[in-house]
Simulated assay, not measured.
Amino acid sequence: MALDFFSLKGRVALVTGGSRGIGKMIAAGFIAQGAKVYISSRKPAACDETAAELSKDGGECISLPQDVSTVEGCKALAERLVALEPKLDILVNNAGAAWGADFDEFPESGWDKVVNLNLKSPFFLTQALHGALSAAAEEDKPAKVINIASIDGIRLNPQETYSYHASKAGLIYLTRRMAARLIRDGINVTAIAPGAFASEMNRVARDHGEEIAKRIPSRRIGRDEDMACAAIYLASRAGDYVVGETIAVDGGVALASVGVG
Rank of each mutant, 00 (worst) to 15 (best):
S236Q: 10
L88H: 01
L88A: 01
R223E: 15
F6L: 09
A76S: 13
I31E: 04
A248T: 10
P44M: 12
T190L: 06
G251R: 09
L91D: 02
V82L: 03
A231P: 05
A78M: 04
C61D: 02
Y38N: 09
T246M: 09
F6I: 02
S41C: 09
G10P: 09
F30H: 09
D102A: 15
C61H: 02
L54V: 05
R184I: 12
M227Y: 08
H130A: 09
I183P: 05
G195L: 03
E200G: 04
D4Y: 01
K144N: 12
A128H: 04
G23S: 13
R42Y: 05
I232Q: 08
Y173Q: 14
G96C: 00
K144F: 06
I183Q: 14
S69Q: 01
A128V: 04
L117A: 01
H208T: 00
I148W: 00
N188Q: 15
V204M: 02
V82Y: 02
S167E: 04
F124M: 06
K43N: 15
V12S: 15
L64Y: 01
E160A: 14
A198Q: 11
D67W: 00
R42E: 05
T70I: 08
S236P: 10
A97K: 00
L77A: 00
A32Q: 15
S40H: 07
A254W: 10
G259C: 14
L156K: 08
M1I: 12
W99Q: 10
T126M: 03
D140G: 01
Y241V: 09
F123Q: 10
R20Q: 15
A143N: 04
N188S: 15
E79W: 01
E53W: 08
T16Q: 02
K144E: 11
I146D: 01
E85W: 02
I232K: 08
G209P: 06
I232T: 14
T190F: 03
C47F: 11
E105C: 07
I62C: 07
A143D: 06
V71M: 08
H165K: 13
F6M: 07
S257Q: 11
S134W: 03
V115N: 01
E211R: 10
Y241T: 08
L174R: 06
S55R: 13
L255G: 12
K75S: 12
R223T: 14
G186V: 09
R184N: 11
L81T: 06
I90A: 09
A166F: 02
L234E: 07
L117M: 03
G59K: 05
E85F: 01
Y38R: 10
T70W: 04
W99K: 11
S199H: 07
D67H: 00
S236G: 13
A51H: 09
G59R: 05
S257G: 06
C229T: 15
G153P: 13
A180M: 14
T175A: 02
S167C: 07
A101K: 08
S163G: 08
L125D: 06
V253D: 14
S41G: 12
K36N: 14
M178P: 07
I39E: 08
L133C: 01
P122M: 05
G21L: 03
K214Y: 00
T70G: 05
A76D: 13
G261D: 15
A230I: 04
V253W: 13
R223N: 14
C229W: 15
E245M: 11
E139W: 02
G252K: 11
R155C: 07
